[in-house]
Amino acid sequence: MDDPFVIAGETLSSRLIMGTGGAPSLEVLEGALRASGADVATVALRRVDTAQRGSVLDVLERVGCRVLPNTAGCYTARDAVMTARLAREALATDWVKLEVIGDDRTLLPDPVELVDAAETLVDEGFVVLVYTNDDPILARHLDDLGCAAVMPLGSPIGSGMGINNPYNLRIIVEQTTAPVILDAGVGTASDAALAMELGCDAVLVASAVTRAEKPEAMAEAVRKAVEAGRLAFGAGRIPPRLYARASTSDEGVPDLPGEEG
């Protein structure tokens, strides 16, 4: 295929990245991951529970997914940087999905803390995939300071409201040199297709799949939507117009006089 998706020099086979949060069990998660075709999946970092049996890491290894640790739950640059360092130590990867949240009601990124944390982590050699607001100016700052991917939200995490501001997303796609990955807000397959049609390089989906009634079926639907959306983006859509434009030519329309004719 000559449409490779590359992050920090690594070619990924799928433009769908999966979040592993929200699945009711590791078994359900494994089925959904396989159906998604994703080759990267996020994990969070939390205190070990020595009573816990089975690990999300075992699932990812069986499925063949690359592990992308996130900094979910961090409200300050300091916490996010510490979490990223611990993730690098635990999981032997420089890749991190950077999240710095402003409050627990909206889970929207805190732009001030976010830029601070991104700068520090890029300086420390991390491959930073940064979860951001759908603000083109903030996205530009994150792109300029060397993030490996810019990940604007479609709508708040877990809301399933789709893409609230497709116009801002278009601007972000146009101006960003790093890959743009739509992150957060996808509710169903068509949201993922729209993101790809708008020119995003990839989509990250968690709740839409893991909290669906049938996670495996939704994972397959989203996978196909991402593929379809990517194809449509490259196919050059017709411009929308207010009035109709006949697809059938007027040429050769017969003259069929009525009884009075």
Binding site: G19, T20, L26, T42, V43, A44, R46, V48, L57, A206
Partner: peptide, 10 residues
Amino acid sequence: VEILTAVQGG
């Protein structure tokens, strides 16, 4: 001491 590991998330 904090001892952390990967869990389902994000």
